[in-house]
Amino acid sequence: MNNRAVVVLSGGLDSSTCMGIAKKKGYEIYPITFSYGQRHDRELNSAISIAEYYKCDDHKIVDINFLSEIGGSSLTDKSLEIRENELSEDIPNTYVPARNLIFLSLAIAYAETIDADYIYIGVNSLDYSGYPDCRPEFIDSIQNTARLATKRGVNQGNIIINTPLMDLDKKQIVKLGVRINVPFELTTSCYIGEDEACGVCDSCLLRIQGFQQNNYVDPIKYMSKNEETFK
Rank of each mutant, 00 (worst) to 15 (best):
N2A: 08
N2R: 07
N3I: 09
V8K: 02
S10T: 13
G12Q: 02
L13N: 08
D14V: 04
D14G: 04
S15D: 13
S15E: 14
S15Q: 06
S16D: 13
M19V: 05
G20H: 13
A22P: 01
A22M: 03
K25E: 03
K25W: 00
G26W: 11
Y27E: 00
I29E: 02
I32G: 09
T33G: 09
F34R: 01
F34K: 01
Y36G: 12
G37D: 09
G37A: 02
R39G: 07
R42E: 11
I48M: 15
S49H: 01
I50Y: 08
I50Q: 10
A51P: 00
E52L: 01
E52W: 00
Y53S: 02
D58A: 09
D58E: 10
D58C: 13
H59P: 10
I61N: 13
V62H: 14
I64W: 00
N65H: 06
F66W: 08
S68M: 06
E69T: 00
E69S: 07
I70P: 08
S73W: 05
S74W: 06
D77T: 01
K78P: 05
I82F: 00
N85I: 07
E89R: 15
P92R: 12
N93A: 02
N93M: 02
T94Q: 04
V96A: 15
N100G: 12
L101M: 14
L101P: 08
I102H: 06
F103L: 04
S105H: 07
L106F: 10
A107I: 06
A107M: 13
A107W: 12
I108N: 04
I108V: 02
A109S: 09
E112G: 02
T113I: 01
I114A: 08
I114S: 08
Y118C: 15
Y120R: 03
Y120Q: 04
N124H: 11
Y128P: 13
Y131F: 03
P132F: 02
R135E: 04
R135V: 11
P136C: 06
E137S: 12
D140T: 10
S141Y: 06
T145Y: 07
T150Q: 10
T150I: 09
T150K: 10
K151N: 10
R152T: 09
Q156R: 01
I161C: 12
I161T: 15
N162R: 15
N162G: 11
L168F: 08
D169I: 08
K170W: 00
V174L: 03
G177N: 07
I180L: 07
I180P: 03
F184V: 07
L186K: 14
L186G: 09
C190Q: 05
I192V: 03
G193M: 05
G193A: 05
E194L: 05
C198A: 06
C198K: 04
C201Q: 03
C201N: 01
C201H: 03
D202Y: 10
S203I: 00
C204T: 03
R207L: 09
R207H: 09
F211P: 05
Q213K: 05
K221D: 12
Y222M: 09
S224L: 00
N226Y: 04
N226A: 11
